[in-house]
């Protein structure tokens, strides 16, 4: 099998039963993606596949020939954090840190969905809904945090989203 992970080509021979998550954690030493339930219930394993967020425990590695996969390790490093990673630190958007890589990867994917104008269950309109805090809460509800950093995660995502928006508005002009 061939995958592009965090921009690097990877070759691997995998058991057909191996999930994408276990490929990352057990075969490629990319342990940033976490296993919390192995059943797509908690979101700790969220990674980006071809730009979209996905529960990596619910998909088999053999289904991803030539796919572009981005994990938390590909977003930033402790020395050079991605804006969302930095905002999570600033707003204390985590405690134990175990769900955090999944929350951050999910937030990256979610903000992209918002940018594309996708509505959610709480959207008042189907067409380019307002990006309220309730939208963040709804769209992030697939990522559990038992330490319950939820309000701080919302603050972190809000800050990054707001910082992005003026730049976009400028570009649109």
């Amino acid at each position: 099998m061939h995958f592009t992970i965090n921009g690097q080509p990877h070759q691997a021979e995998v058991d057909i039963r191996t999930t994408l998550l276990d490929l990352l954690r057990e075969h490629l030493s990319l342990t940033g993606s976490k296993k919390g339930c192995d059943h797509g219930q908690c979101g700790a394993c969220t990674v980006l596949v071809n730009g979209r967020r996905i529960n990596s425990c619910l998909t088999l590695a053999v289904m991803h020939q030539d796919d572009e996969i981005v994990t938390i390790e590909g977003l930033g490093t402790p020395e050079k954090l991605h804006p969302l990673q930095a905002a999570f630190v600033k707003h204390d958007g985590f405690q134990c840190g175990y769900c955090t890589p999944g929350q951050i990867c999910s937030a990256v994917g979610m903000l992209d969905e918002v940018e594309k104008g996708w509505p959610s269950h709480v959207s008042a309109t189907l067409d380019d809904p307002d990006f309220t805090d309730d939208e963040i809460r709804e769209r992030m509800s697939g990522n559990l945090c038992r330490c319950s950093a939820y309000p701080n995660i919302v603050d972190a995502i809000r800050e990054v989203a707001d910082a992005k928006q003026p730049a976009q508005a400028e570009a649109a002009e």
Binding site: L30, T31, G32, S33, K34, T71, I72, E73, L75, G76, T77, P78, E79, L81, Q85, A86, F88, V89, K90, D92, F94, G97, Y98, T100, P101, I104
Partner: peptide, 16 residues
């Protein structure tokens, strides 16, 4: 003060 283990955790580098 921000958590001193924060950057490791948000970057997926803290080892559980």
């Amino acid at each position: 003060i921000e958590r001193i283990d924060g950057p490791l955790k948000v970057a997926g580098q803290a080892t559980y």
